[in-house]
Amino acid sequence: MPRWLWFPAALAAAFIILPLAAIVLRVDPATLPALVTSPSALEALWLSLRTATAGTALCILLGVPLATVLARTSFRGQGLIRSLVLLPLVLPPVVSGLALLYTFGRRGLLGQSLDLVGIQIPFTTLAVVIAQTFVALPFLVISLEGALRTSGTRYEAVAATLGARPTTVFRRVTLPLVAPGLLSGSVLAFARCLGEFGATITFAGNLPGVTSTMPLQVYLLRVDDPDAAVALSLVLVVVAIAVIGFARHGRAL
């Protein structure tokens, strides 16, 4: 490696670390405890944790079968499906929110029928969970599919010749073998759920205790009460650091 690479590399690292340091330095330690434990902050935090947990669960429920089908089968149009499934990863979240609105909204593709049976999704906590799941699902699918491809099918073949039915093989061999990949995928999905903003505000709206998650609170407070916004941001930064550490640890297992 040429020695001069150190300089731009250090610049790149500083580029990421400096803003994070800036937000930490902006925190007033005297008021922090009060701001973080204020009823509105706790309400937002609790809502965020609940929705992100539900979103992650939904990601696992839907993502594990999808990743398995993508990794273990081949059919016409599979490449296209894979690309489309990964789309929310690169799509601006606002666009994701609009897409969800046109799907589950009152006049949306499915929303119209749902409305007839009395189910209305926008402005509910369920809408938050749906928005989070939509943007986080690709994270889980991509890491799990990679893990499945790496682990290969040899163990599954052995298990089958030992008399295990496909479901038994899936439960006792396939899933345990990719557990580290599933874990880090879930953690990443959880983090993405927790940080979701654009799709949520577009699709679910903003109401304290119902749809106003931490990022929405930060956005709302940033002008009128910057200290509170910074305090909440710090909480999100700390959670993000914990998540990254956990995901890296999981990968190393």
């Binding site: 040899r154 163990y155 073949a157 052995v158 030992l162 008399g163 039915r165 496909p166 038994t168 061999v173």
Partner: peptide, 30 residues
Amino acid sequence: HARGVALLAQDPLLFPHMSVLANVAFAPRA
């Protein structure tokens, strides 16, 4: 799985997440 044909390959391919005993008990459990 329903053939009653067991295959022993060049690599032992023991399931890495199970103990030796659990590996051998796999077929009866299945």
